[in-house]
Amino acid sequence: MSTPAPKSAHRSLALRLGLVALAAFGFGFALVPLYDVICAVTGYGDKRMLSQASDAPGVVDADRVVTVEFLAELPTVGQWQFRPTVHSMQVQPGRLYEATFIAENLSQRDTYGQAVPDVAPSKAASFFRKTECFCFTPQHFAAGETRQMPVRFFIDPALPKYVDRVTLAYTFYDTQAPVAALSNDYLLK
């Protein structure tokens, strides 16, 4: 450069840099949908698939047996009991099965529970299909109500050969419980 730039040049460069900062702020929010896309592409499979109904199974692979384990988890907020009725099943890929989970609303109020599914190993997620599941919609529970909830599923026969054990986990959230509830209980203690 030859001579120091005038003040207007400072202003315009500062403005452009400010726009870059603004774009970076937007980029942070753009990462939210991008994150799901990247997870879907890089191996987790599309997580939304786990919460969506699938078509009925086709051919059954009778020569193969896969162990499906069930896991029920509760977050730190909300007052529930939640467990599967059986801990594992031996299944043939392509055949339709039903498992049930039992939930009890221990709180003194009406509420809705939302189950969030996860499958391990993550490679197996896109081969775990459900035709019906209590996790598809929020479940209404009256105060003190206990209920059995079904999930009908099958394993896609295209499941990679090296997978012989799949774990289906649900975390059951009380959608009406404010997050702060825990901390206040904890702090008052």
Binding site: A21, A24, G28, F29
Partner: peptide, 11 residues
Amino acid sequence: LIAVMPVLAGA
């Protein structure tokens, strides 16, 4: 700084 501080602000 310009590239990442806004991302923290967003988060």
